[in-house]
Nucleic acid binder design. Structure first.
Length: 815
RNA sequence: GCGCGGGUGGCGGAAUUGGCAGACGCGCUAGCUUGAGGGGCUAGUGGUAGAGAUGCUGUGCGGGUUCAAAUCCCGCCCCGCGCACCA
C-alpha cells in the first residue's frame, strides 16, 4: 500500500464533515482537556519552522482524545500589530486586507497538515467583535484605577515612531526593528501591573508544571528586593533625599549620595550654585544618551558634584551629593546612598573622583584577597554600636533602629515597572477614552463599545497616531456633559489583545459579555499551553496579570490561566533560524505533495527532543517516509497472511512478539505522559515494526497476533500520523474514526518475558553474555555464570571474592 | 559578572533511584534483487591493533568515591540562552 496525498485529503474531509474536533459547551461524562497552542501573528505563510508548535499541540490533543478526555483545541489570530502596518506602508495595501489574506492562507495550510481545530471558535483580534472586549477590558482596569495616564520617562523608538513597554526593549534596542531606544518624557497610558507584582512572583510556585527556566526569567524580571528607604537630610535646605538600599548594614560606610539625572530635586539643589550651567549641561548630556550605551561592558561612569551635602542620619557625617550617569531612572527613588567599600559600582566611581572609602564590613579571613569592594558577608566594623554584628543581624537591627527613630522605613522594591500600553500607531484597538475640556478624562460608556478603528489612507508613522488626522474620529460629544470633546487617538499594545484570548475561545460568539463565566470556569485553566520560549516574559506575564485581575474582580474562578506550559525549541536550518531574509526556509507544500502530511508530522516530532532546538535535514524526512512504508507493508502482509494452523500452544516467537507489543504500548504511553518525548515514543514504535517484520520473515505466527501487532502500531501512531492511521484503521475493519478508539493498554502479563539476556562481568568488565530464565534464583544464575567456558578461563586459578547480582541485568564477579 | 540549560560516533540523538554506552533514525561500506527516475532485502558501521578469535581504549578536561560512573563528589574548560550597573 502506498501513502499518497489522496489519503490526506480524504481524511481531512472526513474529520471536517463529521465535526470530529468541534466541541460543545460541556460534557459531564468525560474529564475536560483544554489544549492551547500560542496563536500566530499572521504575517506570512507558515514554513516548517513554524509547524512544530501546531504539530506538537495536535499530537497532544489527539492523544488526550484517545485517552478519553473531552478535548478543546482552538485556533485564532493575533492580528493587530506593527508588521501589518509596515507592509501597508510598503505595498499600499490596507493592513486589514493584508492580514485577512494571510489568515486565509495559513488556515488552509494548517488544515492541509491535518491539524484538528475547532474552527467554530476561531477568534481574530483585529475584528470589532473581538476588540470590543479588549476595550471593555481596558475600561474594567480603568474603573478599578489600574489603567491610568501619567507623564514619565518612557522608551521611545524613533524608527517605529512609538513608545514601547520595558519588556519590548532588548539591550536598549527596539524589539521589532533593533533601532536604539531613547528615553522621553511623555504622557502615556499604563496598566498598573505593579499592584500584582508580589502575587505574580509568589504564585510562580503554584506552577509546578512550568519549565523552571521560564519561572526564573519571570522571577528575575519582577525582581523583588527587601530593604530600607532612608531619609537623608540636606545641609542648609529644608528638604532631604530618600534612598532605597538593600544593604542598610553598610550605612556607616556611606560616603556620598548619587542621583539620577532625572531626579526631581535636582533643580532645587542647584538653584543657587555657581556651577549651575555646567551641571545643567551635564544633565542634558545624560538625558540624550541612548539606553543601549549602558548595556555595554565598558560603560564609563561619570558624575558631577552638585555642591550640596547630605547628613548621614546615623552618625551626622557630612557626605557630598553627586549626579551620576549610572543611577537608574524608575527604580527606587532615583537616589542612592553609595558605599564604595562594599559596592563595586560605587567603588569604581569613588576611585575615579577620589571620594572617601570606609570599610564597615570585615571580610572573613579565609576569603581570597582581592582588589575593590567586598560585597559578601562579614562582621561590622566602624559602625558605632553595631560593631561585631554579622551582616544579616545588623540589617535587622539597624532597620528597626531607623524605624524607631524615624530615619527610615522598611520597604519592598520591584524591578517590574507598570506596563505602558499606549502606542502611537494605527493598527491596534483604539483606547476608549474621551477628553472633555470640562469633565477631563471620560471613559467611553459601555454601550458605545466598540470604538471602531476608522479607515485611514495614510499610515506613515509621524510620532503621532495616524488617528490624529481623522477629524470625524476625534470629534465627539462628551458622554457626561455633551460638550465638544476629543477622542484619545493612541491605540493599544497588541500584547493587550493577546493577554485574554484564551478566554474568548470559550464563548467566541458571545454578544453581551467578553466571556461566559460558567463556561470559562468549566474549561479553564488551560491544561496544556504550548509555545515558544520567546514569550517567557512578555505574553506569559501579561496574561497572568490580566487573569489575576479578572480573578480578583470575581469574573473568573481561577488565579492562574495555564496549568502546564511546554516551550518547544526552534527548528533551524544550516545553523540559523529559518527566515525569508536568510533564504533558508523549507516550504511545506513541496513536502506535502511529495511525502504527505504525516511524513512531515512524523519527522518534526522525531527529529529530537521537542523542547530543544533541532536542525532540519531533508534526509531525516526520507527516513520517516521509508518507515511509514515499512509499516504499511505490514498491512499488506497481514491481508494475505495465511499461516498453517498451529498447535494451539503459543510459540516462542509469538510470545516474544506479544511481549514487544505490550512493552511498546507501555513505553510509548510513558513517553507521552511525561514531558512529550515524541522522539523516543516514535523510535519505540519503529522497533515494534522492525521486530514484527523480522518475526514474520523468520517464523510462522498466528494471524491474530500479527493483526494485534499491526493494529497497535497504527493506534500508537495515530496522534502523530493521523491520516495513515485512519486509513489503516478502516482497512482493518474499523467503522469509526481511529480517534474514537481507546488508547491501547499494556497488559501486565505480557510485559514480563520468560527469558532475558544478562551480562557477566569480571571486576566490572563485561566478559560474557548469558541467557537466563527470569524465574531463576540468584544462586542458579551465579552457578550458570561460573560454569560458562569463558568465565571459567578468566577466573581460572583465583577464587571469586564477591559476586554481585543485579536482578535480570548483571552478574559481577569480583576477584 | 549573575542565573539557567548543555557538551555522548561522520550527523540528529538514546540511556541519569550508578548496573551491558551508542537504542531509533540519517549517512556510509559490501552483497543480493531487471526495482531500473531518492525502491526493497541481508550483513557491517565509536576509535585502535589484528587475517581472525579477541585485546586495549572510549561519553569536554583533571582528580576522587564504588564491585560497577555518561550518571555521584571536588576542581576546571567550552558552547547556547536569559538578565545585565535593580543599589
Amino acid at each position: 500500500m502506498q501513502y499518497t496525498k489522496d489519503i490526506d485529503v480524504k481524511w481531512q474531509k472526513y474529520w471536517q464533515e463529521n465535526r470530529l474536533f468541534n466541541v460543545g459547551i460541556k460534557q459531564r461524562s468525560k474529564p475536560k482537556y483544554y489544549c492551547l497552542v500560542m496563536f500566530p501573528y499572521p504575517s506570512s505563510e507558515l514554513h516548517v519552522g513554524h509547524a512544530r508548535n501546531y504539530i506538537i499541540g495536535d499530537a497532544v490533543a489527539r492523544y488526550k482524545k484517545m485517552c478519553g478526555f473531552y478535548v478543546l483545541n482552538p485556533m485564532g489570530w493575533d492580528a493587530f500589530g506593527l508588521p501589518a502596518e509596515n507592509q501597508a506602508i510598503k505595498h499600499k495595501i490596507h493592513p486589514r486586507d493584508w492580514t485577512l489574506k494571510n489568515i486565509k492562507r495559513i488556515t488552509q495550510q494548517l488544515k492541509s497538515w491535518g491539524i484538528g481545530y475547532d474552527w467554530d471558535r476561531e477568534v481574530t483580534t483585529c475584528l470589532p467583535d473581538y476588540y470590543k472586549w479588549t476595550q471593555w477590558l481596558f475600561l474594567k482596569l480603568y474603573e478599578k484605577g489600574l489603567a491610568y495616564r501619567k507623564e514619565a520617562p518612557v522608551n521611545w523608538c524613533d524608527s517605529c515612531k512609538t513608545v514601547l513597554a520595558n519588556e519590548q526593549v532588548i539591550e536598549g534596542r527596539c524589539e521589532r526593528c533593533n533601532f536604539e531606544v531613547i528615553q522621553k518624557n511623555l504622557r502615556q497610558w499604563f496598566f498598573k501591573i505593579t499592584d500584582y507584582a508580589s502575587k505574580l512572583l509568589d504564585d510562580l510556585d503554584l506552577l509546578e508544571d512550568w519549565p523552571q527556566r521560564v519561572k526564573t526569567m519571570q522571577d528575575n524580571w519582577i525582581g523583588r528586593s527587601y530593604g530600607v528607604n532612608i531619609h537623608f537630610p540636606l545641609e542648609g535646605l529644608d528638604f532631604g533625599l530618600d534612598c532605597f538600599t538593600t544593604r542598610v548594614d553598610t550605612i556607616f560606610g556611606a560616603t556620598f549620595i548619587a542621583l539620577n539625572w532625572a531626579h526631581p530635586k535636582i533643580p532645587a539643589l542647584i538653584s543657587d550654585s555657581p556651577d549651575k550651567d555646567k551641571i545643567h549641561g551635564f544633565v542634558k548630556e545624560l538625558e540624550s544618551q541612548p539606553l543601549s550605551t549602558r548595556s555595554v561592558d565598558n560603560f564609563e561612569k561619570k558624575g558631577i558634584f552638585s555642591g550640596r551635602y547630605a547628613i548621614n542620619p546615623m552618625n551626622g557625617k557630612k557626605i557630598p551629593v553627586w549626579i551620576a550617569n549610572y543611577i537608574l531612572t524608575g527604580y527606587g527613588t532615583g537616589a542612592i546612598m553609595c558605599v564604595p567599600a562594599h559596592d563595586s559600582r560605587d567603588y569604581e566611581f569613588a576611585k575615579k573622583y577620589d571620594l572617601e572609602i570606609i570599610e564597615v564590613i570585615k571580610k572573613p579571613k579565609n576569603s581570597p584577597d582581592s582588589e575593590g569592594a567586598w560585597e559578601g558577608d562579614g562582621f561590622l566594623v566602624n559602625s558605632s554600636d553595631f560593631d561585631n554584628l554579622p551582616c544579616e543581624d545588623a540589617k535587622e537591627e539597624i532597620a528597626s533602629y531607623m524605624e524607631a527613630n524615624d530615619i527610615g522605613k522598611r520597604e519592598v522594591n520591584f524591578k517590574l515597572r507598570d506596563w505602558l500600553v499606549s502606542r502611537q500607531r494605527y493598527w491596534g484597538a483604539p483606547i476608549p477614552i474621551i477628553y472633555c475640556p470640562d469633565c477631563g478624562e471620560v471613559p467611553v460608556p459601555w454601550q458605545d463599545l466598540p470604538v471602531l478603528l476608522p479607515e485611514v489612507q495614510e499610515f506613515l508613522p509621524t510620532g503621532q497616531s495616524p488617528l490624529t488626522y481623522i477629524k470625524d474620529f476625534i470629534r465627539v460629544k462628551c458622554p457626561k456633559c455633551s460638550s465638544e470633546a476629543k477622542r484619545e487617538t493612541d491605540t493599544m499594545d497588541t500584547f493587550v489583545d493577546s493577554s485574554w484570548y484564551f478566554l474568548r475561545y470559550i464563548s467566541p460568539k458571545s454578544q453581551d459579555l467578553a466571556f461566559l463565566q460558567e463556561d470559562v470556569d468549566y474549561w479553564l485553566p488551560v491544561d496544556q499551553y504550548i509555545g515558544g520560549v520567546e514569550h517567557a516574559i512578555l505574553h506569559l506575564m501579561y496574561s497572568r496579570f490580566i487573569n489575576k485581575f479578572l480573578h480578583h474582580e470575581k469574573l473568573i474562578s481561577f488565579s492562574e490561566p495555564f496549568k502546564r506550559l511546554f516551550t518547544q525549541g526552534m527548528i533551524v536550518k544550516d545553523g540559523a533560524k529559518m527566515s525569508k531574509s536568510k533564504g533558508n526556509v523549507v516550504a511545506p507544500d513541496y513536502i506535502l505533495d511529495k511525502y504527505g502530511a504525516d511524513t512531515m508530522r512524523l519527522y518534526i516530532l522525531f527529529m529530537g527532543p521537542p523542547q530543544k532546538d533541532a536542525e532540519w535535514q531533508d534526509e531525516g524526512l526520507q527516513g520517516c517516509w521509508r518507515f511509514l512504508h515499512r509499516a504499511l507493508r505490514l498491512v499488506d502482509m497481514l491481508k494475505s497472511y495465511e499461516p498453517p494452523k498451529g498447535s494451539g500452544e503459543m510459540s516462542k516467537p509469538e510470545r516474544e512478539l506479544l511481549n514487544k507489543i505490550h512493552s511498546t504500548i507501555h513505553s510509548v504511553t510513558k513517553d507521552l505522559e511525561g514531558n512529550f518525548q515524541f522522539n523516543t515514543a516514535i523510535s519505540r514504535i519503529m522497533e515494534l515494526v522492525n521486530q514484527t517484520h523480522k518475526t514474520v520473515n523468520e517464523d510462522t505466527i498466528a494471524k491474530d497476533i500479527l493483526h494485534q501487532a499491526v493494529e497497535t502500531v497504527f493506534l500508537l501512531l495515530a496522534p502523530f500520523t493521523p491520516h495513515v492511521s485512519e486509513e489503516v484503521n478502516q482497512i482493518l475493519g474499523g467503522t469509526s474514526s481511529v480517534l474514537q478508539r481507546p488508547w491501547p493498554k499494556a497488559i501486565g502479563k505480557y510485559l514480563v518475558s520468560e527469558e532475558v539476556e544478562i551480562a557477566v562481568l569480571i571486576n566490572g568488565k563485561v566478559r560474557d553474555k548469558l541467557m537466563i530464565k527470569t524465574d531463576w534464583s540468584q544462586k542458579e544464575v551465579e552457578e550458570k555464570a561460573l560454569s560458562q567456558e569463558k568465565i571459567k578461563q578468566a577466573v581460572s586459578s583465583s577464587q571469586p571474592k564477591k559476586i554481585i547480582y543485579i536482578d535480570k541485568k548483571i552478574v559481577n564477579i569480583v576477584l
